[in-house]
């Protein structure tokens, strides 16, 4: 899947919520989009799913390509047949995304029937197979249970079963483990990794946790204020981060090997969308910003496929800091 130059804003606002975002996921690859609240990572994924209401959003540029199909997001509406079939999504809070009034089996079967037709019982059989595949013990019995009878980790497994029921090419996972405990988080991340190996689907995972990124991703895109500030293969970005925001995020994470060391911070907070500066949007919080940063830096490759959007790359060649 390739998403090119997506720019969109909510109607009635002066500023773009997502600005010129391009992402690419290859078959069998896991792309992590990482950033803090309000960086536009969820809106981007909603746009890929075609879930943003036309009446409230204004897309000014963007193309999306899945296999050989291509859509111009400005003019085309993404076909409903795409959702849940070729592109599927799982959400952060599995309790609110499952319907509490229907049995698990019926909810999965509905997705299957909707896209593939066929009989109810065939769909239920498919649901059972899927539950088994996501590691739920006793699938026959679980099919007849309601969401409230399952724990958080199990519900997330059900969501994954539902998303994968139609063998999608792309899975979008929006903070799939944020609401879960660490031991359960490991189980779910392992499951997503295994299913990727089995099915060869491409995965876009949205997260705020750099630890999760290091754990599971093949490639990573760091977003700030609706812009991609850095992207590339995960080993390369973690070994050789370049953008001041990426460096700031990594410095702000407590390190197990340096307990008690004072954490470096990213000063201030993310500006609201109406107060976003033009040019590089990180410049109001960046210690290295100059007046030049009012011109938007382009994402430029510093290594194969490792792009950074900063005028002062590499930083150590451009600045010195005196105490």
């Amino acid at each position: 899947m390739v998403l090119s130059n997506l720019t969109l804003r909510f109607k009635g606002q002066e500023n773009d919520v997502v600005q010129d975002v391009s992402l690419r996921v290859r078959r069998g690859e896991i792309l992590c989009v990482v950033g803090e609240s309000g960086c536009g990572k969820s809106v981007t994924s909603m746009a890929i799913m075609g879930l943003l209401p036309k009446s409230a959003t204004q897309i000014s540029s963007g193309r999306m390509q899945i296999s050989s199909d291509e859509w111009h997001l400005v003019t085309d509406r993404l076909p409903a047949a795409l959702r849940g079939n070729e592109v599927a999504m799982i959400f952060q809070e599995p309790m609110t995304s499952l319907n509490p009034a229907f049995r698990i089996g019926d909810q999965i079967a509905e997705v299957v029937q909707r896209h593939r037709g066929g009989s109810r019982s065939a769909a239920l059989d498919r649901a059972e197979v899927m539950l088994q595949r996501v590691g739920i013990a006793n699938p026959t019995q679980r099919l007849r249970e309601y969401p409230h009878q399952l724990s958080g980790g199990m519900r997330q497994r059900v969501m994954i079963a539902m998303a994968l029921a139609n063998d999608p090419q792309i899975l979008i996972a929006d903070e799939p483990t944020t609401a879960l405990d660490v031991t359960i988080q490991t189980q779910i991340l392992d499951l997503i990794g295994d299913l990727r190996d089995e099915t060869g689907m491409g995965t876009i995972m949205i997260t705020h946790d750099l630890g999760v990124v290091a754990e599971i991703a093949d490639t990573v895109a760091v977003m700030y204020g609706g812009q991609i500030v850095e992207q590339g293969p995960v080993e390369e970005v973690f070994r050789n981060p370049q953008h001041p925001y990426t460096i700031g995020l990594m410095s702000a994470m407590p390190r197990l090997d340096r307990p008690g060391e004072r954490l470096a911070i990213v000063p201030g907070t993310v500006p609201t969308i109406s107060n976003m500066p033009d040019g590089c949007r990180f410049r109001t919080r960046c210690a290295f910003a100059t007046s030049h940063c009012a011109t938007r830096p382009q994402l430029t490759d510093v290594a194969p496929e490792h792009g950074v959007a900063c005028h002062y790359v590499p930083l150590e060649k451009h600045v010195v800091v005196s105490a």
Binding site: G248, S251, A264, V266, P267, A287, F288, V320, V321
Partner: peptide, 11 residues
């Protein structure tokens, strides 16, 4: 550099 700059150093 980042740490120095965010703890009062002059860039």
């Amino acid at each position: 550099l980042y740490r120095a700059a965010t703890t009062g150093g002059t860039v």
